[in-house]
Design a protein around this nucleic acid. Structure first.
Length: 482
RNA sequence: GCCCCCAUCGUCCAGCGGCCCAGGACGCCGCUCUUUCAAGGCGGUAACGGGGAUUCGAAUUCCCCUGGGGGCACCA
């Protein structure tokens, strides 16, 4: 039977995560590439939740994954399809395979298998299954069941020959069947396993291209042989993406910092930037552009230009991309994006007017939204304003600070309260101070940190009264110290 | 242990037999701009893992080694 997909040549891809945790950047990249491919070819992008393992799956994780995809801007056209609701489909396929002798009941427990391999004459052999129940007679099976044993279902893999498939980005991949043991397709409790559900669903959903991580490359042979046993429909094209490693080229983990998409979000990264960076990890446009939005990437995306080697996640480069994106937003867009984070950080103390103005001066220097907010702490800290040790060192490390601050207070007390009026350069140099030398100390008094928003803009936003108070507080502290 | 995939600057990529004593980006280092720190501008540092083979000619093709990653679950 020809499928609609085959008839029209329509591309249908799916992102199929297991809801056993929030969306990991590696999975996000896989989702992204599926999305890009679908959009590039006017195809359909489907979300399928692979939750056949009851013990590891949780609804809240499925929701978290959907949220993360939405945040990234990867909207799907179909789904989510939950495999846990399609158990009957898998069971029917499994029964058929059993009936046809392509699969068999296995009564071995994990402990049985482990025990046998431990006493094997050839220790350290392949950790897989040894085929113990492969040719059990009906009598044996009857005895096992009578003894109360439950059976899992194993697929009988070929003993000889080679399994091969052509990977869209790696070319032909081949492996000897002898290295692939009979594998379980239905658990003893009746629930299907990944291989089965995967084969059945890709068939049922008429998936044309399977784009996933390279960690699944070896499982392809199993899914393919299973699929062929279930139906004669031509298999989809497989494309295995290079994995994303940590900066040290080891498996990317929490140890390397943020790994869940949600963490990047709360750390102040823009979805455009994360998607942009992820697209560049393993792919690049012909002209070498770096900063691109999703549509621009879609316009040029192709599996043939995907890299083969695993890539190390580079936080520095992500930071740069994020900064570029922050600068690309209009002030209004930036404000809309950062507002939730700002409310969480400053609450009632946030003054919308001042906030917007501060945003304007901070936009051109920010790396992340959170970092941008941190630069505004001095504006909305209220009574909790304090000077960091690092900043205080700038104060005490400046020659004649007291005299400098006296000049500062004098000027701030009766200058015009505008960017120009608040300019301390003239009064300072007229008093004989080197502006560049003395600036850090003044900066520290006002903003409490060694770096951040430009001083004169900051003074204007802070207001004359508070500004003078802060300098005065430092003068008192210095007097008390001396 | 066995199997699979991969291999260009510190990192991400370009390169698909001559245009390459290898190009771009991040980082890093200078310089510049400058009211702190950034951002910006300019410049610099830095790589084809090793050995064979094919060829008039290899970063580019083939083989071996080495190295890195992944897999070998009643996880996906």
């Amino acid at each position: 039977m020809e499928t609609i997909a085959a008839d029209t040549g329509r591309v249908r891809v799916r992102f199929s995560p297991a809801p056993s945790g929030s969306l990991h950047v590696g999975s996000a990249r896989t989702a992204l590439f599926n999305y890009l491919f679908a959009r590039r070819h006017g195809g359909t992008f489907i979300l399928r939740i692979e939750d056949t393992d009851q013990s590891r799956s949780r609804d809240e994780w499925a929701r978290a994954i959907e949220d993360a995809l939405g945040w990234l801007g990867l909207n799907y056209d179909e789904g989510p399809v939950f495999q846990s609701q399609r158990t009957e489909e898998y069971r029917r396929a499994a029964d058929d395979l059993l009936t046809r002798g392509l699969a068999y009941e296995c009564f071995c427990t994990e402990a049985d298998i482990k025990a046998r391999s431990a006493t094997s004459t050839q220790p350290d052999q392949t950790p897989g299954y040894d085929g113990f129940c492969r040719d059990l007679t009906p009598e044996h099976r009857g005895q096992a069941k009578a003894a109360g044993k439950t059976a899992s279902l194993r697929f009988r893999t070929p003993d000889t020959g080679v399994s091969r498939f052509t990977d869209a980005i790696r070319g032909e991949v081949r492996v000897e069947w002898s290295s692939i043991p009979d594998f379980v397709i239905v658990r003893a409790d009746g629930n299907p396993l990944f291989y089965l559900a995967n084969a059945v669903d890709d068939l049922a959903m008429e998936i044309t291209h399977v784009i996933r991580g390279e960690d699944l490359i070896d499982s392809t042979h199993r899914v393919l042989v299973l699929r062929a046993a279930i139906a004669s429909t031509p298999p989809p094209v497989y494309a295995h993406l290079p994995l994303i490693l940590g900066p040290d080229r080891a498996k990317l983990s929490k140890r390397h910092g943020a790994v869940a998409l949600e963490e990047f979000r709360s750390a102040g990264y823009l979805p455009e930037a994360v998607a942009n960076y992820l697209a560049l990890l393993g792919w690049s446009p012909k002209d070498g552009r770096e900063i691109m939005d999703l549509d621009e990437v879609v316009a040029e995306f192709g599996l043939d230009s995907v890299t083969h080697a695993a890539a190390a996640f580079d936080h520095d480069k992500l930071d740069w991309v994020n900064g570029e994106w922050i600068r690309r937003l209009t002030l209004g867009e930036l404000e809309a994006r950062i507002r939730p984070l700002a409310d969480a950080r400053f609450g009632e103390r946030l003054d919308p007017e001042i906030f917007r103005a501060a945003l304007a001066v901070g936009q051109e220097r920010a790396v992340t939204l959170v970092e941008l907010l941190a630069q505004m702490d001095f504006l909305f800290a209220g009574d909790e304003f304090s000077i960091s040790d690092e900043a205080w060192a700038k104060v005490t490390g400046t020659d004649q600070v007291e005299a400098v601050l006296t000049v500062v207070v004098a000027h701030l007390a009766d200058c015009e309260w505008t960017i120009e009026g608040v300019d301390l350069r003239s009064p300072l140099s007229e008093a004989g101070f080197k502006v560049r030398k003395v600036m850090p100390a003044i900066y520290a008094c006002i903003e409490g940190r060694p770096s951040g928003l430009p001083l004169f803009d900051s003074l204007v936003l802070l207001g004359r009264e508070v500004a003078i108070e802060r300098v005065a507080a430092v003068q008192e502290r210095l007097a008390g110290t001396v």
